[in-house]
Amino acid sequence: MIASLIVLLGMVLSVALTTLAERKVMGACQRRIGPNKVGYVGLLQPFNASLLLNYVADGIKLILKESVLPLESSNLLFFAMPFFTFYLALLNWLVMPLDFGVAVGELVGGGLLVIVAISELGIYGVIFSGWSANSKYPFLGALRSTAQMISYSVGLSLIMLTVIFTLGTIDLLEVITAQRSVAVCFALFPMVGLFMISAKLNTISLTYLLPEAESELVSGFMTEHGAFPFACFFLAEYCNMITISTLFGVLFFGISVASGAHIALLFFMIWLRASLARLRFDQLMSAFWSHMLPFLMGYIMFLPAFLYTFDILS
């Protein structure tokens, strides 16, 4: 009880600090300082009690705001979906390894499948929240985000499948222990790069800013959401970013969240967001379906034959 509460609260806290890290890194990339007033070098920015310090706050402020329920929306779905999305984002941490042989929920066997299932359930949060707002921009934004997320989640699952082929297990704790002698990232080097790309695009990623294309779609599927429902989407997004960065370390390097190495991929995601221009939507989709997917299918065909020929099945 207490232990799970500590892990979950730590997760929420870590998400809050990730939003700050993003603003700082973006600031550094654009040659400005970024938030540096609240607390020591801006460290208290995410929790700022704005009434006292009179600065713009990030986290607590959104709880204090008024929630608007649009007249024509489907009320239940409209308020339930942000909750659902954030809940799913936190549920990932039931099975995510915290250290060698340590996870919050002791689930024997199928940790990787649980993560895949949760990340694909998250798509319902996007599509229903866009539909239930009963407004044009959220609807179009939800369609686009859904198409993008389901495409790249296929890619993500195929990449996980290559790791399963190589290590012969779907238990995340066993995935870590199987890599104690040598990490699998050397054997599956092309997959490392592809995982980085599809990890960014599978989370509701701010990276290419496609789901919330500000110039044409205002704010994507969450245009009508304000106050804490919006904050839920925001937190869930960063929570998913941390989860997928940790999963990257677990799958390819055999290191868990205790090593803190997921910060590298997190930094890489923010860095890409600051430096790359936005893709057009059709370019993004054709990049997956006509370039990445054929390569992945070929790799899946090649890999078992390779492992069998050289007799290195685990």
Binding site: S4, L8, L9, V12, Y87, L94, L107
Partner: peptide, 16 residues
């Protein structure tokens, strides 16, 4: 601790 217990804790945390 069990999976169900932890997921209930997460549910309560967000609900509050």
């Amino acid at each position: 601790m069990g999976i169900i217990q932890t997921s209930i804790v997460a549910l309560l945390l967000i609900a509050v």
